[in-house]
């Protein structure tokens, strides 16, 4: 019996939907849906301590697969250039719920949704380790 590792709950875009709808249509659908339910409050309050902890997690622990300088490793690069054009909601979903079939695990036991959003913004703006 084979299992995909790295995630217990599948994000919607990697589930059955993906297999039925072409990638492009799926993305459009996803971004559309995202616009509807994306919180408009911007960044939630994250304490400086938590920000430090999240940066540390990003560099040291995400870094074990994505490279400490985020240039990639077993996992893809997470540099600003590499992530250009990727919807924030998709990145947040991947962080929180992982990518089944790949080693990317769900990190939702380590951070809140707001904290994942904060990390996504950090990455999209070009996180400097």
């Amino acid at each position: 019996m084979k299992h995909s590792r790295g995630g217990q709950s599948a994000p919607p875009f990697t589930g059955g939907l993906m297999s039925r709808v072409s990638g492009l249509i799926n993305w459009t659908l996803l971004v559309g849906l995202a616009a509807l339910c994306w919180p408009s409050t911007g960044m939630a309050d994250i304490s400086p301590d938590r920000e430090r902890a999240l940066r540390h997690l990003l560099v040291q622990d995400c870094g074990s697969c994505h490279g400490m300088t985020l240039q990639g490793g077993l996992g893809p690069a997470l540099t600003r250039t590499a992530l250009a054009g990727k919807p924030a909601i998709m990145l947040r979903e991947v962080i929180l719920h992982g990518r089944p079939g790949t080693p990317m695990p769900p990190w939702n036991t380590f951070m809140s949704e707001a904290e994942a959003d904060w990390l996504v913004q950090l990455l999209l703006n070009g996180a400097s380790p």
Binding site: M1, G6, Q8, C65, L74, P105
Partner: peptide, 15 residues
């Protein structure tokens, strides 16, 4: 082969 005995593995936070 199949050492997991069909149980879903846990998410892996470090290879």
């Amino acid at each position: 082969q199949g050492y997991g005995r069909g149980e879903a593995p846990l998410p892996v936070y470090k290879m």
